[in-house]
Design a protein around this nucleic acid. Sequence first.
DNA 1: TATGAATGAGAATTCATTCAT
DNA 2: CATGAATGAATTCTCATTCAT
Lengths: 197, 197, 197, 197
Amino acid sequence: MAKPNVVTKAQLIEAAKQCVVESGIENLTLRTVAAKANVSQGTIYHHFQTKERLMLDIVEDTCRASWRDLQDPADAETFIHRALRSAQSRQGHDSSFHQLFLSLVVISLHNQQMKDRIGSVMKAENEELTRILQTLYAESPVNGLSHATVAILLNALIDGLAIQSLMIEQFPREEVFQSLQVLVESFIRSDHTRMGG
Amino acid sequence: MAKPNVVTKAQLIEAAKQCVVESGIENLTLRTVAAKANVSQGTIYHHFQTKERLMLDIVEDTCRASWRDLQDPADAETFIHRALRSAQSRQGHDSSFHQLFLSLVVISLHNQQMKDRIGSVMKAENEELTRILQTLYAESPVNGLSHATVAILLNALIDGLAIQSLMIEQFPREEVFQSLQVLVESFIRSDHTRMGG
Amino acid sequence: MAKPNVVTKAQLIEAAKQCVVESGIENLTLRTVAAKANVSQGTIYHHFQTKERLMLDIVEDTCRASWRDLQDPADAETFIHRALRSAQSRQGHDSSFHQLFLSLVVISLHNQQMKDRIGSVMKAENEELTRILQTLYAESPVNGLSHATVAILLNALIDGLAIQSLMIEQFPREEVFQSLQVLVESFIRSDHTRMGG
Amino acid sequence: MAKPNVVTKAQLIEAAKQCVVESGIENLTLRTVAAKANVSQGTIYHHFQTKERLMLDIVEDTCRASWRDLQDPADAETFIHRALRSAQSRQGHDSSFHQLFLSLVVISLHNQQMKDRIGSVMKAENEELTRILQTLYAESPVNGLSHATVAILLNALIDGLAIQSLMIEQFPREEVFQSLQVLVESFIRSDHTRMGG
DNA sequence: TATGAATGAGAATTCATTCAT
DNA sequence: CATGAATGAATTCTCATTCAT
């Protein structure tokens, strides 16, 4: 007993994320994580010194993933559609992303370090979307609102819809997201000068 | 030793809600609630038979409050302004409402009963807002979208902004909510005006 | 399951002291204490919030006992004989007192609160013995040494002998303590003016 | 990866002794020792097969050191002064020796092997001091007590004073040890002088 | 030799829950 | 109704020890 190198940190984080989605972050125990990863509890403590550290690493991992998606090179125009489509897919059968995200948000309400990390990513997402909107429209697509504000509202929309989608049985996902797409397209087709390609 | 009627159920629920906001729903213990309400743990068991029932009652209480707000008689036009203003005030100094709401949402992800209750209220809110929009506009204020969809999007916006406001240090609350008000007013003043136009 | 008032704090402390003597303070676990007291571990936490608090209470209890012995009314002359005899009896078959005492001393080396408590009792014992010596002899019984110093040396002698007695197999307890008694009596019989009765 | 001869057993024992003095024998862990010696935990297991053996080796090392001091060639008369002076210096700024000694004594209360080892050294110290007293005085320096008993009492005095010195804040070290020296000198200068006279 | 990942037994501690008063 | 002592299961965490490299 003591086989070396049976798991990596990444595998443990993955197992932990699954546990959160499966049984709720309030029920996340290291016993469960260890079981899911097929290692002993001690192993978890060898990699993360405390449960809090593991949770911080889950946040870190999730944030890094979001950031990677963001940086994914793509021409600006398709960016928003891609975002919408990915958001939609996340809501349906595979709602795990938003479950995890919301769980981390709630836990971070009483953990400044987590809050800082998540907050910084959300801010970065707003800024990235702002940049993209600026590429698409010389003037803001919505009268009277700055590009930055439109970006904030769009990102808020995604998160707010995720909540409704998670909570409301038979939420009309398809319809709403198609409407959103229509809305966004109406920006793009609108008579405002289009700049970036 | 038995002082009668020292506390009411409502007081205990209030205490529990405070505990959630102060130390996180993941740290909600009956000991804490009892301490905050200045009663013994046993007392809590006389009012709620289990911890889960207490949490269900918190949800119930929170939902009923939302519903009461909704039913509050007021002419349709001012409804949205009132909603926006209240949403805004909830985000700034007194963010506790949204903290509580999000916490309950996350917990309910693994509690069907809670999920049903919260989901039904969110659905009702969508429907109520739909009704109001129908009162205000013969046709939907946003081209191509049904009244119901606009309602969903507006409500999603509120929740999504709440998250950003809770997570992002120095989130531009004032600016964003004024923009939102501008946006909504542009609906009201100009029937049939396209959102993006 | 939950029979009220099955144990008192005093009983738990007694059980803990027995555990220390039986298996060493370095092996003191709350599981053991609970088992010895026939209660659950939770019960121990109901009375003492932490293990450290329990240990502080053991110290407190032991110190209070020492102090009570000290205050025990007795004419000064017999005091020392009584002390010697009790010290001796503590060393032989019933060495538990000194085992406990030394264990607490060692633990307290890294616990200021415990150290303060034990230190204050030891100081008080020195002072009490000084007072008694002053009652017995106008001038110090040992040439060139103050009453206080003689008291310190005598008390040190007791502790030092306890260690030897605990560690050395077949330590000549009888012989040494009779010698000590002879020595002390030689003080009393000496040509120095005797005062108190 | 295997650097040869990075540490010697002696270095590990030294590290362990430091750990005991710094954080208490009850908190001695192999992790701590390894950290202090800048080696891995595995390395400790190459030198000592178990934690208990490490502790036995600490005892062995400490006892051997005492014994070495004892054998140190010196004329009998100065022996006692040297002992007193070294004892005194051990108590003040550098109290670590007695901290370690007492810790080992307490642990050995429930480890026969350690007890035997420490006991044998204490006995040897008594015997050596007896021999020295016999060299100095034809008859015992204290009327009615054998040389052996006086030796035991003197050694007990050293240990007992060490405890007081460790526990009592502002223990009058200087004064007491000078008194002790006066006392011992009174033996040496006046053969046959009665201690109490 | 030396390493350090892995282990499992057991430590302290928490907590929902029960029950006699 | 209200209390609070008692419970036991579960949780976080520690640590001596093993073993493949």
